[in-house]
Design a binder for these strands. Sequence first.
DNA 1: TAAAATCATTAGATTAAACTAATATTTCTA
DNA 2: TAGAAATATTAGTTTAATCTAATGATTTTA
Lengths: 165, 165
Amino acid sequence: MVEQEMPVKYTPSMEDYLEAIANLGERTKAVRVSQIGQVLDVKMPSVTSALKRLSDKELVRHERYGYVELTSKGEEVANETIRRHKALSRFFTEALSIDKKTAEEDACKIEHVISPLSLDRVIKFVEFIRACPQGGANFPKRYQYYLDHGELPEECLERSLRGRK
Amino acid sequence: MVEQEMPVKYTPSMEDYLEAIANLGERTKAVRVSQIGQVLDVKMPSVTSALKRLSDKELVRHERYGYVELTSKGEEVANETIRRHKALSRFFTEALSIDKKTAEEDACKIEHVISPLSLDRVIKFVEFIRACPQGGANFPKRYQYYLDHGELPEECLERSLRGRK
DNA sequence: TAAAATCATTAGATTAAACTAATATTTCTA
DNA sequence: TAGAAATATTAGTTTAATCTAATGATTTTA
C-alpha cells in the first residue's frame, strides 16, 4: 500500500506570503518581517503569526528576531505561484490590453484560484498571439481598435475583399 | 455633506450563497436550507449561520424553519455576481476552448475577485470574437488548431500569400 | 555607551466560515 | 393521528487571518 502524496493545497494568504518572501529574497539577502508586512500591507504581528503557520507546514525557516528563509518546499510553492502570476499578468496586458497595474492586481487574486487547465490555455493563448502573424500580430491590433472605437475595424467588415467566393 | 455610498464588498462565500439562492429561486418558489447546502456542498448548520450573517446585512429574509428569500439588495448582488459568472464562463468556453465543467468551476472562483475593468475586457473580447469574421470567426478556429496540433496552422505561417508586399 | 528608534513578538480580541452532536420542528406515512 | 423521517436550529469547537496594545530585543546614533 503506497502512501498517496496528495497534492497539498495552500491558502491564498499562504501563497501570498511565500511569493512575497521569494520576491524579497531576490534583492535582499536577508528577508525581514517588516518588509513582508509592507509588501503585503499587513501589520507585523500578522506576519509573525503567518510565519508560524508556514513553519508548521515546513514552508519557511524562521527563528525569533531572525531572518526568514524559504525551505525548498516553500520555494517550490512560491515559484509555482509566481509562474501563475506572470502568466496571468502577461495575458491581461498582452491579450486583453489591460494596464499593468490592474493586470498585476487581478493576477494577484486569480493566481490562487485558477485551474491548471485554464492556466495552460491562458499561456497558450499568449504564445499563439505572439507567434501567429495573422491571427496574432493583427489580432491584438484589431482588438485594440475595437476597444478604442467601439466598432469593428474595416478588415473585419469587408469579408470577401480578398477574392473569397 | 453628502453621505458617501461606499461600494460595499461582500465575501466570496456570501456571494456564493446569494448566487445559489437566486438560482434556486428560479425553479422552486420556496428555497430551503437543505437545498442551499446541497448546491454549495456544505452542511445545514453552515447554511443557517451564513443566513444569519446575510440577514444582518439585509441581503436575505429568513425566519426560523421558514423559507429563504432575497431582499432587493440581495437580488442586486446576486444578479451582479451571476453576470460576472456568465461572462467568465462564456469567455473560457468560447475564447479559450475550455470544457464546460472547468469553465464553470473557474468562473465560480474568479467571479469573486476579478476587477470591473478586466471583466469588461473579457466581455468585449467575446463580443469581438463573435462579431469579427477574420479576427473572430477564424481566430478561434486557428487557436483550436494550435491547441490540437501544437503548431501554427498554414495561414499563420505563409504571411505574404495574399499579395501583401 | 546609554538613550532613542526601530523591529519583532506575545497576549488577547475579533470575524468569517466551516464542522459535529444534540435538540427542536415540521412533514410525511402507515 | 401517532410515530418515523426529514429538515432546521442551537451549542460549542476549530482554523485562518487579521487587528491593537503591551512588551521585549536589536540597532542606530548622539
